[in-house]
């Protein structure tokens, strides 16, 4: 490295990468290369760990999904698409795909609507604002497993909230997560396509837990909208709903995108909530790909099929995340 004529760097001085004002062109060039080196050196450990423990294992899972390793004993002979074909041909996995799509769409809609409503209410400069903010965001601090257990008690048809409904004279009590009804019930492949009503019980718990997060992000977004724009709109005579639809909502577009992306990721890998609350459910009305993957892999010892399910989940995730990444990159370049 150094050629001896360099200024020695002693600990009392600021580090070379901090000072940029002093020094001639020759030294500056050297400093840039030192910057690059230190950047690489700083990032290398985490890149290496990410490379091995995330991307390496994704590659490994992908490899396993094309092998015949479907028993306790590892066998790595090539199976082609066989694992994917047999997984897609099961009633259970077809149900999983239906459930995860229905769940994700309704979960995100629910969180956006509830979160926005809460944010708008809190944004009215109410008294004890921070208290309410905390109350609404607290559920997020709870583990999904705890949420699942508590809501399975609340919504248990024999013991939970139904007893209150009964006391109020409700005749036909909801069966919550025990319902096997699917609306509108169109037969496709081996399964019925539609919205399994049992999922609403799970959605109730999930939205309860995560809408506080949407609220917090929306609140930050609302506070970032400049008063000038709102003032101008007011002078132009718009208020109330008109103001919300035409001024506030368009300003919150990127906020909404952020929430949608984060919640989608949470939704596609939902496991603990369903595992603790309902399990796969009768006729797999509340089953999710992650649950299927876990049981296939660790209870059935069908490692290759489990890996195939994992890769499908990854691809589902990519469908949502990649467009977002591309658009952020474009925005980054434009600015």
């Amino acid at each position: 490295m150094g050629n001896g004529t360099e200024l020695p760097h002693n600990p009392a001085e600021p580090a070379p990468w901090i000072s940029t004002k002093q020094g001639g062109a020759r030294v500056k060039r050297r400093r840039v290369s030192w910057d690059q080196f230190s950047a690489v050196a700083t990032l290398a450990p985490s890149l290496l760990l990410l490379g091995v423990f995330v991307y390496g294992f994704i590659a490994w899972t992908g490899y396993v999904s094309f092998t015949n390793w479907n028993s306790f004993i590892p066998t790595f002979s090539f199976a082609g698409w066989q694992n994917y074909i047999s997984v897609f041909n099961t009633f259970r996995f077809q149900s999983d795909l239906r459930n995860i799509v229905v769940f994700t769409v309704l979960f995100i809609l629910g969180c956006l609507v509830v979160g926005m409503a809460l944010a708008l209410l809190i944004d009215q400069r109410i008294r004890a604002e921070s208290l309410f903010r905390s109350i609404f965001i607290f559920p997020m601090a709870i583990s999904f497993v705890v949420t699942g257990v508590i809501w399975s008690w609340i919504l248990n048809p024999q013991t939970g909230v139904n007893l209150i409904l009964k006391a109020f004279g409700v005749k036909t009590l909801p069966t919550w997560f025990l319902s096997t009804t699917i609306v509108p019930n169109i037969t496709l492949g081996q399964i019925q396509i539609g919205i399994p009503l049992a999922l609403f019980a799970v959605l109730l718990a999930a939205v309860w837990q995560m809408s506080g997060f949407a609220m917090a992000v929306y609140l930050a977004g609302l506070r970032a909208i400049s008063e000038d724009i709102k003032e101008a709109a007011r002078i132009d005579g718009s208020g109330g709903w008109r103001m919300f639809w035409s001024i506030i909502l368009p300003q919150l577009r990127s906020t909404t995108t952020t929430i949608v992306i984060i919640l989608t990721a949470a939704s596609l890998k939902v496991f603990g909530l369903v595992y603790a609350m309902t399990g796969p459910g009768q006729e797999f009305v509340t089953d999710m790909p992650s649950l299927n993957m876990f049981q296939t892999t660790f209870q059935g010892d069908q490692f290759a099929q489990g890996a195939a399910i994992a890769i499908v989940i990854l691809l589902l995730m990519a469908i949502f995340i990649v467009p977002y990444l591309i658009s952020t990159l474009r925005q980054g370049r434009a600015s």
Partner: peptide, 19 residues
């Protein structure tokens, strides 16, 4: 018995108890 069989059996049962 074979854990793969048991898992498939449980899956078939989850459907059979309802339909």
């Amino acid at each position: 018995v074979n854990p793969g069989f048991t898992n498939s059996f449980n899956n078939a049962m989850e459907i059979f108890v309802t339909n």
